Simulated assay, not measured.
Amino acid sequence: MDLLQLRYFQVVARYEHISRAAEELRVAQPSLSRTIARLEADLGSPLFDRQGRRIRLNQYGAMFLRHVDRALSELDDGRRALRDARDTGLGRVSVASETLLTVTHALGSFRATHPRADVRLFQSTAEEMDRQLRAGEVDFCVASQPLAGAGLESIELAREEVLLAVPCGHWLDGQERVTIPEIADEPFVTTRVGHWQRTLLDRLFASEGLTPVLSCEGDEPGASQDMISAGLGIGLIPAMSRQAGTDTVVPVAWVHLAAPNCHRVLTLVGNPDAYLSEAALKFREFITSRPFMTHRLPDPRRGRRRPLP
C-alpha cells in the first residue's frame, strides 16, 4: 500500500465512477483500475461493489475511506505547517465564495491590513465548497446558503433583504411591493441550480405552488443586474452584492417582495478539524470582528442607493 494508491482510492470513492476519477487524476482508466485492484488485494477485501461498468463504495470501502480521509488530511496539514514555518510571511489563506463580488471588499481590506498574507480566492457552488473544505483545498467558504455536509462550523457574517430588480420603464417600475403570484408570468434572469439565488427563487415560487419562467441561467450572479437593465427579464438581487461592485449603478428599478424569508444570510464556514495557517487564523478574526460590509438598501422606487436609517 502506498500514498498514491490512497489518493487514487479517495477520488474514485468520491465519484464512484472510474472514468470521471481518471479524468480528474489525469491517468488512463486501465491504470487506475489496476491501482484500485492492487489496493484491494493488499487489504484482502473488496472496497467497491461492481455491477457491469458501475461501481459503488461498499461497507468496507466506506469504513476504509473515513480513515484514508483523516490520514491524507493530516499529511496535507503537515505539509502546510512545514511550508508556513519556512515562510517569512504569514502563510496562505484560501477562501471560496459563490460570487467573487461578495468577498472582494473584505479580502481587499484584509490584504491592506496584512500585506504579508498570501490570499487565494475561488468561485464555487455550494456543492463544490463542501468538497473543497473536506479536501483541505480551502480554509473557509463565504456561503449564502447552508452547506450540506455535517461536521462543519459556520459563523453568521451578515443578513440582508433580497429585492426584485426590474428594467426601468417596466410595469413594476414605481411599485412599492409585489407578490409572487403577480409576477408568475414574468421571465427571470437567475443563476444555475446550485447557486443561492436559484435556490431562493425556486423556494419562493414553490411556496405558492408555482414554477418560475426563466429567460437566462448563468454562473456569475454579478452579471444579473446588467442583463436585467438590458430588458432580458427581472431578477432577485441582494443589496450587499450590488454594492460590492463598482460605484456605477446599473439603472434598474427596485421593488420589495411580499414573501416570507426573502433574504440572504452570509456565513463563514470552516472545517474545525483542519489545520489553519497564521494567515487563515488572522483572516477568521478579521472577518468576524467587524461589519462584513456597509449595510445599505436601495430605494425600492428608483435605481439609486440610500443608507439605512
Rank of each mutant, 00 (worst) to 15 (best):
Q123P: 13
Y60P: 06
A280M: 01
R302D: 15
I36C: 04
F286N: 04
P309H: 06
S94R: 00
S224E: 10
S207Q: 14
V93K: 00
P167V: 09
V166D: 15
I183N: 09
R131G: 13
S124M: 11
A85T: 08
V11S: 11
A106N: 10
F292D: 06
G44M: 04
A13M: 02
T99N: 11
S215M: 00
S207N: 15
I155P: 05
R83C: 05
Q175K: 08
Y275V: 03
R296Y: 02
P272Q: 03
G209S: 06
M129A: 13
D130N: 11
Q197F: 08
N271Y: 08
Q145G: 10
L57H: 05
F48D: 12
E208P: 01
S144M: 11
T191V: 10
V138A: 14
S109C: 12
R302N: 15
R86H: 08
A85E: 13
P30D: 12
V119T: 07
R53E: 08
N261M: 07
L82C: 11
T294I: 01
D87Y: 03
P212E: 09
G89T: 02
E217V: 03
R284T: 06
Q175M: 09
Q132Y: 15
E186W: 02
V138I: 15
V93A: 04
F140L: 09
R306V: 14
E161D: 07
G169C: 07
Y275T: 04
G151V: 06
A148F: 09
E98I: 00
F9D: 11
L47F: 05
A117G: 08
S224M: 07
V189M: 08
T191F: 03
R120N: 07
L200Q: 10
V103C: 09
G235M: 06
C168V: 15
